[in-house]
Simulated assay, not measured.
Amino acid sequence: MTTHAATGTPMRIGLVGAGPWARLTHAPALAAHPGVRLGGVWGRRPEAARALATAHGADAYSGDAGFDALLAASDAVAFAVPPDVQAPLAARAAAAGRHLLLDKPVATTVAGAREVAGAAERAGVASVVFCTLRFAPGTAGWIGEQAATGGWFTARALWMGALFADGEGNEFGASPWRREKGGLWDVGPHALSVLIPVLGDVTEVVAAKGPADATHLLLRHTSGASSTVTLALDAPQGAVGTEVEFRGEGGVATLPAGGGDALGAFRVAVDALSEAARTGVAHPCDVRFGLRLTEILAQAEAEAEVRTRA
């Protein structure tokens, strides 16, 4: 059983958010985790917070005073809200000494992500950014294997969804921030979270826009390898898919299919946060990594906009 570092009791984790992602993944994973007690649910919509909290036998909170009450009832806070709502609330939680289980991206501005990272560093709290493939049992080990193999010459990653297609009935398609920021910011963190551990940090970025919300990236990494990335949420139905491929001295390695079990991955992320809080050893996918993802994506966004205007 995972226990809270200071008390030896289950870690109390409060949930910020009551939308589809919180309802489908965060709340059920936290409520069922043997080493966790769901400290409560805070939502911007009181009725949604009440419904989700009631479903899992927890207290509901809303409003500014409610957020403070959730912090008082929690050792850590998990976030399932839009990134630029998440950032100031996460900085506030860190300042109150609460560990952070963040969603990706941490923020869509570098300033916002730096605020969270700075608050976490000053408070000395543990943090984990939930990039699904870094924690999903079907893919986390594979990423580690490719990093250990080395000798990669190049890689390509493709994340394409049809989130906004008519008739899809996808709840995430109603997300205003996803419509505004597109695939670059929603699925870009997934691609980078696989590429960077294997090829190293990004040193150069070239970006260009494609049709609809598609964005194409050409990246150079500290290992000397290059990678190409194609990202979209508004692709045609027939174009949907996720692919990652590394090519190098050892041949070709392809991301295993079926590695995106969000519930299982989130449980692993909870364990990672608890371990980081217990040991004081930062997790590789912590808020500093989340800040780096935001820096790269912001640079790509700016590059693509310049090319569009040219």
Rank of each mutant, 00 (worst) to 15 (best):
W142P: 03
P88G: 08
T154V: 05
T132D: 13
R134E: 13
V110I: 11
A87V: 00
A147P: 07
A126N: 05
A148L: 09
A93S: 06
A123W: 05
A87R: 04
A107H: 08
G97Q: 11
Q86M: 05
W159Y: 14
S127W: 02
A96L: 04
G138F: 08
A91Q: 08
A95K: 08
V116Y: 10
L100F: 03
A96V: 02
L89N: 05
A93T: 03
P105N: 10
H99I: 00
A107E: 12
G118K: 06
G141I: 00
R92I: 00
T108R: 15
A117R: 06
V129S: 04
W142Y: 14
A120W: 09
G138A: 15
H99E: 00
T109E: 15
A94C: 03
G138I: 01
A119S: 06
L100A: 02
D103S: 12
A87Y: 10
A126L: 02
A136M: 07
G124R: 08
G141Q: 14
G124M: 07
R98Y: 02
A123C: 06
F135I: 00
L102S: 05
A140C: 08
A111K: 11
I143F: 09
G97I: 02
P88T: 03
M160N: 07
H99N: 04
F153S: 15
A126T: 00
G141C: 09
C131K: 03
A140P: 06
V128I: 05
P137T: 09
T132G: 07
V128M: 04
A157E: 13
A136E: 12
A123G: 01
V116D: 11
L101S: 04
A136N: 11
A87M: 03
F153R: 12
A157Q: 09
W152H: 10
A147F: 10
A140S: 14
G118T: 05
A140L: 04
L158Q: 14
V106I: 10
G112R: 09
T109F: 09
R134S: 12
A90R: 01
R114I: 01
F135H: 14
T154D: 15
P137M: 13
E145R: 15
G138E: 15
A96M: 05
T132A: 10
Q146F: 08
C131S: 11
P88L: 11
V106Y: 08
A91M: 06
Q146C: 15
A95E: 15
A94F: 01
W152D: 14
L102E: 12
R156I: 01
K104T: 01
A123P: 01
A96K: 05
G112P: 01
G141D: 15
A120K: 02
E121Q: 11
I143V: 13
V129H: 05
A147D: 10
L133N: 10
L102F: 02
M160F: 02
G150L: 14
F130M: 07
K104M: 08
T139H: 12
A119Y: 13
L133Q: 13
W152M: 09
L102K: 01
A147T: 12
W142D: 12
V129C: 03
A140I: 00
G124E: 10
A148N: 09
A120F: 05
W159V: 00
V116T: 01
L158M: 13
W142S: 07
T154N: 15
A119W: 12
